[in-house]
Design a binder for these strands. Structure first.
Lengths: 114, 114
DNA sequence: GATATAATTCGATAATAATAGAAATATAGA
DNA sequence: TCTATATTTCTATTATTATCGAATTATATC
């Protein structure tokens, strides 16, 4: 059963990585992180990155499906924001892989923000 | 010019994320991290994960192209190992996004390995 | 209700990626 | 050189993903 949960977890993290694994979507995530915590409206993201609205909508949907972004409506505007908690979780997962098994990476080496 | 370099960097990190963004390849990376620093031979990885050799070879090639794994030959065996430095770089990039712009995530929250 | 704007959904196409059996290549040893 | 094993490359098929114009839905205002 632990194996099954593990499998589901791996699938989930793989999907999250995949969601950020295209240039347009990684740009979107960066932009939303930069605009955190307020977020940005769709039109502004589209203007900034030069992405047609229908294309952008699909990208945002994918990021939303993987819980990497959140949405709230304010009138006719939809405000998208980065889900930093999910991102933290993903990084934590990768980080855990890197150091808990056999000290492949020294904790200090990955702590930046000096 | 800074914009161009930035674009290339984003494309590179997106490719790295994409490379880990499938269940089989994320499993491979995890397995190689677990076996770090010695790594594992291809056949052992295939046996452990139940992946046919030709399929596995393609996955390893992709991970190698993104510099997430390294190879060395020893007789008829090829030893693949995780490139922890590249992984560290990727995590650092994401991590930087998360905290340098507006303290979206507290550094302490992502430092695990307690 | 009519109009205007924001954003999504529809529909269709093109591009990329995943999979795996069969054939080829690389290396070691007899 | 011949044989055995490890791994890749070839070839083909199937599945998934990215893209975007046009049509639709949602909300607000007059």
């Amino acid at each position: 059963m632990a194996k099954k949960e593990d499998a589901a977890l791996i699938a989930r993290y793989a999907d999250m990585l995949s969601a950020m694994g295209t240039e347009p979507r990684l740009r979107i995530v960066r932009l939303l992180l930069a605009a955190h915590p307020g977020g940005m409206i769709v039109g502004e993201v589209g203007d900034e990155l030069g992405i047609p609205s229908s294309t952008l909508s699909h990208h945002l949907e994918k990021l939303k499906n993987e819980d990497l972004v959140r949405v709230r409506r304010e009138g006719t505007y939809l405000w998208y924001s980065a889900n930093t908690e999910a991102l933290r979780e993903l990084l934590g997962f990768l980080y855990a892989e890197c150091c808990t098994r056999n000290k492949a990476i020294e904790p200090q080496k990955i702590v930046c923000c000096k």
